[in-house]
């Protein structure tokens, strides 16, 4: 199976080769669309950055007791959740849905296997996905979703 090519951040998506040609109308529309949403992306990013710690702590506090006692798996899973959220946030900021996937795909599945984090990951990400819409507006959520989902997919890929 060949994976689809992984997209790049916004400036890489453009052919920066003025010796060949001007940017195409299609590329300019994309760029304008991106610039138009940039203020909103920055607000969402800032919101996530400021609320990260509190948000994750809330997710952890809601976990059932039996999960709380598996400290090693829990701590690793928390780190993974933070990483995924950070990559998703940055992916949203620079319009690169696959940033997290590119950086984490060769690594995350191994960590899940070594630290047996899958059950905790599942719980944490289920409540993360429920909590995020409370922090962000609908349009911000729509921009965060693609990079978040692309990174979260890696959590299920370990059984392949």
């Amino acid at each position: 199976m060949t994976l689809p090519p992984l997209s790049q951040h916004i400036l890489r998506q453009l052919e920066l080769q003025p010796d060949k040609n001007y940017l195409t109308p299609h590329e300019l529309i994309g760029l304008r669309h991106y610039v138009g949403s940039l203020a909103d992306r920055i607000r969402a990013y800032r919101q996530l950055r400021e609320r990260e710690m509190k948000l994750i702590q809330e997710l952890v506090d809601q976990l059932p007791d039996e999960v709380q006692t598996e400290t090693t798996a829990l701590e690793q899973s928390i780190k993974q959740t933070i990483l995924i959220l950070r990559y998703a946030a940055l992916g949203m900021l620079v319009d690169d849905a696959n940033l997290g996937r590119r950086r984490l795909e060769g690594w995350l599945p191994t960590m899940i296997e070594v630290y047996k984090t899958q059950p905790v990951d599942e719980l944490l990400h289920r409540s993360l996905n429920q909590q995020l819409p409370r922090l962000l507006t609908e349009s911000q959520m729509a921009m965060l979703k693609p990079p978040l989902e692309a990174a979260q997919k890696l959590l299920q890929a370990d059984k392949d």
Binding site: M53, I56, Q57, V60, Q68, T71, L74, E75, I78, K79, I82, L83, R86, R102, R103, L104, G106, W107, L108
Partner: peptide
């Protein structure tokens, strides 16, 4: 588990040798 204890230096290790 106190989450803030997990990242004392605000960095969380990941895929060190990631190509990009």
């Amino acid at each position: 588990v106190i989450v803030s204890d997990l990242f004392t230096d605000a960095s969380i290790s990941a895929n060190y040798f990631a190509t990009d």
